[in-house]
Design a protein around this nucleic acid. Structure first.
Lengths: 141, 141
DNA sequence: GTAATTGCAAATACTTTGCCACGTA
DNA sequence: TACGTGGCAAAGTATTTGCAATTAC
């Protein structure tokens, strides 16, 4: 049984957020989306466009991410990350959400079979993947 | 046997790039780094700081990424992506590097065991992961 | 010699904050 | 009433581009 909007609003209330129109509409929008959305997409979506300012959406997302109700995807810096692609090698990363330290994962990557399956079933070409683990490192805990 | 700097420079030459000091230093820097780096980190690194402008590093990275020698990590938009976290559910994504379309992967995620192992061995808390597949969708191919 | 590459500076884009008004509890 | 929240506008940071000068081939 899928999680309902009401339940999610309850989780927000339980973590101390106030029940506002903007919060409800934001949650509803995210809940209806089958994929992650950008701040700009959210702020200009039908339910939010005339409802509230982009800064409001930004701060809501910020609070929701703090409470663990929303997640901001990607390496947690504002800047883009680049890595050299060495033929025949592949790296996964373990990143501390506290201090931002990035280390590489030594264990073999378990994703290749799924990647093959997706390659076959989806018809995508030049397929590759990125896998990152996030958490709080011992030093930050 | 690890890929050498010379070999990588050769790959660049083979894809039509000119052999410049900036290119060599950039590749050497990336090659020595055990983890992905940002444009700012690269441009201010010892080998590049006095060697060339940040715009040059930017354009080099751009060309190298085009040629498949460097990879820019993360969802390929400038903006950050947000997703709702529903208790007990997890999503992986399939993203077209051509048109940017994001769809969710239906197959079960094969990463949980590795995640458990990392949780045990690394001492990280609040561990979670993100897995994305990238490629060219049938429509873009 | 010719086309790719670079530096510098300016323009964009996205994110984040200040401050005061407002609404929820 | 008190404190979290919202709007608007401005500031901050990262990315990207224009153009003339330079360099690799």
């Amino acid at each position: 049984m899928p999680t309902t909007l009401t339940e999610t609003i309850e989780r927000c209330r339980a973590s101390g957020l106030r029940r506002t129109k903007a919060l409800e509409e934001l949650l509803a929008t995210l809940m209806q989306s089958p994929r992650p959305m950008t701040l700009a997409e959210l702020a200009s979506s039908p339910r939010l466009r005339d409802q509230c300012d982009k800064a409001t959406v930004f701060r809501l997302l910020q609070r929701l991410a703090e409470k663990g109700i929303v997640r901001r995807l990607g390496l947690h810096e504002r800047a883009a990350y680049f890595t050299l692609l060495l033929p025949g090698s592949h790296q996964d990363y373990l990143i501390c959400t506290g201090c931002g330290t990035i280390e590489s994962v030594k264990a073999p990557c378990p994703v290749h079979e799924l990647e093959d399956e997706i390659r076959r079933k989806s018809g995508f070409r030049n397929l590759y993947h990125e896998l990152e683990f996030f958490g709080t490192c011992p030093a930050c805990a």
